Simulated scan of single mutants.
Amino acid sequence: MSSSCCSPDGHCSTGTATATAVGVSTTYAVSGMTCGHCRDTLTKAIGGLDGVTGVAVDLEAGRVTVTGTREPDDALIAEVVDEAGYELTGRV
């Protein structure tokens, strides 16, 4: 009898915990974020960059934490944030 990692209802499990963002984390101050749409926009834009493994947006603090496999390119992050309509004002 062969064992499958997927259940009949389509849910898959390898028996390991869900992967979380691992690597180098850098937090940036970003102005102009006010709502869930802002969070979603930045998460998608920054998350699409090569090497980025996680993006956490804190609207109240005006901060975005980027986790990646290597040290982030601040100029590239600033460019993506700017293109999305926000302003990266520096590292926190």
Rank of each mutant, 00 (worst) to 15 (best):
C38R: 10
C38D: 06
R39E: 14
R39T: 14
D40Y: 10
D40C: 10
D40W: 14
D40T: 12
D40G: 14
D40R: 01
D40S: 15
D40K: 09
T41E: 03
L42I: 00
T43I: 07
T43V: 03
T43W: 04
K44I: 06
K44C: 02
K44N: 12
A45S: 08
I46D: 05
I46W: 01
G47A: 09
G48L: 05
G48P: 10
G48I: 09
L49E: 08
D50G: 07
G51M: 05
G51K: 14
G51C: 09
V52R: 05
T53L: 10
G54F: 13
G54S: 12
V55W: 00
V55C: 01
V55N: 08
A56H: 06
A56M: 08
A56D: 15
A56F: 05
V57R: 03
V57Q: 00
V57E: 00
V57A: 04
D58L: 03
L59K: 05
E60M: 14
A61H: 14
G62Q: 11
G62H: 11
R63H: 12
V64G: 00
V64W: 04
V64A: 03
T65A: 08
T65S: 04
V66H: 00
V66C: 09
T67H: 11
T67G: 07
G68I: 04
G68W: 01
T69V: 09
T69K: 11
T69A: 06
T69P: 01
T69D: 15
E71T: 10
E71M: 06
E71V: 08
E71G: 09
E71F: 00
P72F: 01
D73M: 05
D74S: 14
D74V: 13
D74T: 12
D74C: 06
A75C: 12
L76W: 11
L76E: 15
L76T: 15
I77D: 02
I77V: 15
A78M: 04
A78T: 06
A78D: 07
A78W: 02
E79G: 11
V80F: 09
V80G: 11
V80L: 07
V81A: 10
V81I: 15
D82R: 15
D82A: 14
D82V: 11
E83A: 15
E83T: 14
E83K: 15
E83R: 10
A84E: 10
G85E: 04
G85I: 03
G85C: 01
E87L: 07
T89Q: 01
T89D: 04
T89V: 06
G90T: 05
R91P: 10
R91F: 00
R91D: 03
V92E: 13
